[in-house]
Design a protein around this nucleic acid. Structure first.
Length: 197
DNA sequence: CTACCGATATTCT
DNA sequence: GAATATCGGTAGA
């Protein structure tokens, strides 16, 4: 597996790969690419902060961040080191540890267990403690292994979820065509203003 | 199935 | 104060 190339090429190459953590494994079906230097949608675009620090480190590390005050999202840092690019792991199909995953996601249908970035981290029990771990080290708590077979299936691309502005024009969301575990598209939401006083 | 909305950390203005 | 790489519950078609 190669993570040091252009992020737009690395991202689709991860589809079909297997992510394993805490007794559950998923086959990746949906990812998004974020380039740190040129991409307004990237957390790293405006520079280094305590939150995005690991994005500036070596490739193969996990970048885990807390979103909307409630959810964890997991990224794979891509190289070369210093570019601060990453691939957001958006969805997958559970291939091992179904009972554990179901216990962590009460009431969810099997295909919904890891259908969405925050659902995926919940099914795998990934949180901020895993920020910065080396996904390529088999002894890590979270590991990522490349697709075993050459091709997992046809790949489709489209706009990224929740990214507005100039970044919306870049079709850097990649998923396996027809896979039922790909998350439903939610356009960048118009949200109601904060509580009126 | 779609549409709306609340919860709320981190960062930017 | 406002925006954001979201989700689950609820309401309605």
């Amino acid at each position: 597996m190669r993570l040091d190339g252009p992020v737009a090429e690395v991202a689709p190459s991860l589809l079909g790969g297997v992510l394993r953590a805490n007794g559950v494994a998923v086959r990746l079906t949906e990812v998004e690419a974020y380039a740190g230097d040129t991409d307004p949608g990237s957390h790293a675009f405006r520079g280094r902060t305590p939150r995005n620090d690991v994005m500036f480190g070596p490739p193969g590390r996990a970048y885990v961040y807390f979103s909307y005050g409630m959810h964890w999202c997991l990224n794979v840092v891509c190289g070369p080191e210093g570019l601060a690019s990453a691939v957001l792991l958006r969805a997958g199909a559970v291939v091992d540890g179904h009972d554990l995953a179901r216990a962590r996601r009460p009431g969810a249908a099997d295909r919904d267990l890891a259908r969405g970035p925050a659902r995926l981290t919940r099914a795998l029990a990934v949180n901020g403690d895993h920020n910065g771990v080396d996904l390529l080290d088999p002894s890590s708590a979270v590991t990522l292994t490349g697709p075993d077979l050459a091709v997992a299936g046809p790949v489709r691309t489209g706009p990224r979820v929740g990214v507005g502005g100039a970044g919306a024009a870049t079709p850097w969301r990649f998923w396996l065509a027809g896979d039922p575990t790909v998350s439903t598209y939610r356009p960048a939401a118009v949200r109601r203003r904060s509580v009126p006083s």
